[in-house]
């Protein structure tokens, strides 16, 4: 196995460990969004997916 793979995996693993308490804290303390709130996110995300598909067609 390539040493670069091991170092990359270790670095990402450490990043996950450092990010974990923040994730738990944000999960507990983030305000809950309504259906309308989520709809306002889903629409631009669908547009981005379509845009990426358009970019793929251009390659």
């Amino acid at each position: 196995m390539d040493w670069m793979q091991i170092v990359s995996a270790l670095a990402l693993g450490l990043f996950v460990v450092f990010l974990f308490p923040t994730a738990i804290n944000m999960m507990k303390n983030s305000p809950k969004g309504s259906a309308a709130d989520w709809q306002s996110v889903i629409v631009p995300m669908v547009i981005i997916i379509l845009f990426i598909m358009f970019l793929i067609q251009l390659v």
Binding site: M1, Q5, A9, L12, V16, A23, M26, S30, D37, V41
Partner: peptide, 25 residues
Amino acid sequence: DFSFMGGFLVVGFLLVLIAAIANIF
């Protein structure tokens, strides 16, 4: 105000990182 996305985004990012570690191998 998109603050309601905070928890979802961080947890989603953590899951992607774990998947990325698996895909390194």
